[in-house]
Amino acid sequence: MSVKNTIPEKQNMKPEMSCLVENCSSCEVSLESLCLHDQAWITELPESLLLPFLGLRPGKSVSLVARQRFNGPLVVEVDGRCVAISRRVAGNIRVAKASPGRSAANSNE
């Protein structure tokens, strides 16, 4: 499983924002701090009535497709479908770089 690109794209990055780096495979960070094109696995979700129904469930693989301007939402891809999530909500979603074994079936996107 290769991750396409972990180089921060300057245009969309705040300077203090840390990327999920290659050598930190067990780190858990918030979805909000992923870099463009980063892929990660959801570990924890806030209490939400909508997120699970849009495919954002623990164990699912997500990749960051876009970070909107003007402090707008993030766009993530889950199972080939795109979902827009405001930064505050994304800040409460925890993700990890390493795939949890049990979700191998979901991650071959």
């Binding site: 909107q68 301007r69 003007f70 707008g72 939402p73 766009v75 827009a84 405001s86």
Partner: peptide, 15 residues
């Protein structure tokens, strides 16, 4: 709507 969401937020709306 998603592209404009950030701007719309400033007037109390979602994109």
């Amino acid at each position: 709507g998603i592209l404009l969401d950030g701007l719309f937020n400033r007037i109390g709306l979602q994109g």
